[in-house]
Design a protein around this nucleic acid. Sequence first.
DNA 1: AAGCAATAGTTAGTAAAACAACTGTTTCAG
DNA 2: CTGAAACAGTTGTTTTACTAACTATTGCTT
Lengths: 145, 145
Amino acid sequence: MTHPSDYRAYFFKIDTTIKKIRNVLQKQFNEAGFDLTVDQWVLIDHLYRNPGISQNVLADLTTKDAPTVTRMIDLLCKKGLTERRMTENDRRKFLVSLTPEGKMKYHEVLPTVVEIRRKGWGDLNEEDYQHFVRIMDSIYKNFSD
Amino acid sequence: MTHPSDYRAYFFKIDTTIKKIRNVLQKQFNEAGFDLTVDQWVLIDHLYRNPGISQNVLADLTTKDAPTVTRMIDLLCKKGLTERRMTENDRRKFLVSLTPEGKMKYHEVLPTVVEIRRKGWGDLNEEDYQHFVRIMDSIYKNFSD
DNA sequence: AAGCAATAGTTAGTAAAACAACTGTTTCAG
DNA sequence: CTGAAACAGTTGTTTTACTAACTATTGCTT
C-alpha cells in the first residue's frame, strides 16, 4: 500500500495544526496586549527583514494576494507601524517599510514569538525536521504541477 | 542541535502548504462549476458521514467556532443543500443534515476531491505518513498544554 | 509615435474566522 | 420549586481571502 487508507486525514491534520498554532499565537498576542493579528505580525516580520519592498513582493512572500496586502498595509499605516514611499523610477510602485514605531513593535513582539515557536517544536529533532520539510515540500510540489 | 536553525520555517511551511491545497481545490471546484467553497465542502463531507448532528458537534469536527457554523449552515440551507430539524427533547438544538440535493452534491463533488487528495500525496508512502502524523500530532500536542 | 499588453495597486462584493455579547432552554442545587 | 449555572444557537464587529473589475503607469511592437 503506497497510500494511507484514509486520504482525508492529511488535509485535516495540516488544517487543524495550523489553526492551533494561529490560535495560540493570537491568544498570546491578546494577553500581552500587542494589538496585532497573527497575519499583521507576519507582514511586520517580512518588512523588518526586507525594508522598502513593494506590495507585490510582499504578497509573494506572504502568499497573500494583492488586494489583501493593500488592505493590511492600509491598516498598519493607520496604526502608524508602516509607511508607503513613492519611487522615482516607477510611479506605480510604493516602497513599504516599517516606521520607527513599527520597528519597536517588532522588537516588542519577537521574544514572545520565538518562545512560542520553540514550545511548538518541543522535543522534535533535526531528523524529524528533515522529514517534515521533505513531506511538506513534496505535497506542495505535487500540487504545483 | 535539537532544533532547526530557523524556527520560522515550520510555521511558514505548514501555512503555505495548506494554502496551496485550498487554492488547488477551490480552482477545481470553480472550473467544474460546483458552486461550493472548500469550507462548505468540508461541512458537507462531515454531514454526509454524520447525518443529524448538532451545530456544536459540527463546529468541533471542523475546528470552527459556533458563529461560523451558524452562518455557513445558513448559506448551505439557502442553497438547498442542508436542512435544520427541531429536536423533541431539547429545543435548543437543531439536527442538521443534508437534503437530497445535498447528498447529490456530495456524490457529484467527491470524485474530484478524491483525485486531488491522491495527487497531493503523490509518491509518499506509508512510512512518510507515519512520520507526518507523528510530527503534526506532536506540534498540536505541544500547543495544547 | 501610437497602440496594446503587462504591471502595480485599488475598490467592491462575498465568504470565512475569531471574539464578545446576547436570547432562549435545560439542568441542577439549595 | 426557584434561581443560578451551563448549554445551543444567533447577532454584531473586525480581520483576512479570493475574485472581478477598475485606474494609472510602463514597456514593447510595429
